[in-house]
């Protein structure tokens, strides 16, 4: 069964009690030409919502529309019942563009103060944010002197200047090294305990690691909105690494990929039986993991 054909399972989602973001029949685009068509969903549960889709599917356009940057050609975006155009609605949102959004001609500390003023943060705690993102050492450097990763770090820092209820993060971990990506993922996970976080990424393993829901956009249309745990790929492939040297005959019907022996199973429920069978044949399994990511099918 294809992922896109799965029924939506949002009816049972608990409500968070905080502001909700509603997208009602939204068509949106640039200079009158629609990119998104008839998008509808409602979000009120604090969690990470991963927005996925192929390049050009309309993910950035969706973020820009939710943030009130683009005005819908049809439909409406409401935040806590108010149109997102109104400042009261905007004040619930943090938006991080896929671009850095970093103003030239300022140093890091001045840039954070600039952000604090734009976001009407009263006495923004710049020093705390500098420490949080580990950018104290570059506080007095001009932004033009920073590497792409350092600029991204500064860009992310600003969303921690002031607490808001809804975070729209368009590819926040792009261009970051693995260590910093992990730190950012941890911060996002921490945020999502009591905030709504919409987050886009092309890293499917990262998306699966922190996301609770997936919002899939294809061809400008909402292809799927569901819990990630409900997703089942077309195929379920298990990979095992074994402690024994060589290729035991019991693994003859597996295919080899690097250190892993792969086998397609009907589903994850078959894994315990397979591991038991390997164990009874004297094969000591060091690691077993799902080799394909069901989120990949959203890009098919």
């Amino acid at each position: 069964m294809s992922i896109a054909a799965l029924p939506s399972d949002r009816s049972g989602a608990p409500t968070g009690g905080g502001p909700r973001i509603s997208c009602r029949g939204v068509s949106s685009g640039y200079l009158g030409a629609p990119v998104l068509h008839d998008i509808s969903f409602e979000i009120d549960e604090p969690a990470v919502y991963v927005v996925l889709g192929p390049n050009g599917a309309g993910k950035t356009t969706l973020f820009r529309t939710l943030a009130g940057i683009l005005r819908p050609l049809e439909g409406e975006v409401l935040v806590d019942g108010e149109p997102v155009d109104l400042q009261g609605a905007r004040d619930h949102l943090h938006y991080l563009s896929h671009m850095d959004g970093i103003p030239d001609g300022l140093n890091v500390r001045e840039a954070l103060r600039f952000y604090g003023r734009v976001e009407r943060a009263e006495a923004p705690d710049v020093d705390r944010v500098l420490r949080l993102l580990d950018i104290e050492s570059m506080a007095d450097r001009y932004l033009s002197q920073l590497s792409a990763g350092q600029r991204k770090r500064v860009s992310i820092a600003r969303v921690f200047l002031r607490e808001r209820e809804i975070y729209l993060l368009d590819e926040p971990t792009a261009n970051l090294d693995p260590k910093l990506s992990r730190e950012i993922r941890e911060l996002i996970l921490e945020l999502s305990r009591d905030k709504i976080v919409l987050y886009s990424s092309h890293n499917l393993f990262e998306a699966r690691e922190i996301g609770r829901y997936v919002i899939a956009i294809k061809g400008g249309r909402l292809a799927l909105f569901d819990r990630i745990e409900n997703l089942r790929g077309e195929h379920f492939v298990i990979g095992v690494r074994v402690l024994d040297a060589g290729t035991p005959s019991a693994l003859a019907d597996f295919t080899r990929q690097g250190d892993y022996y792969l086998k397609e199973l009907p589903g994850p429920e078959s894994v315990p039986a397979l591991l038991h069978e390997l164990d009874t044949q004297g094969i000591r399994v060091r690691e077993a993991r799902e080799m394909n990511n069901p989120l990949e099918d959203l890009f098919a």
């Binding site: 671009m99 959004g101 030239d104």
Partner: peptide, 21 residues
């Protein structure tokens, strides 16, 4: 004008509009 062009290409205007400027 340099500030205008840089702000446009680097997403600063996008940021400002999102926050109500």
């Amino acid at each position: 004008m340099l500030v205008f062009t840089n702000d446009r290409t680097k997403g600063v205007f996008e940021y400002l509009i999102a926050y109500g400027v």
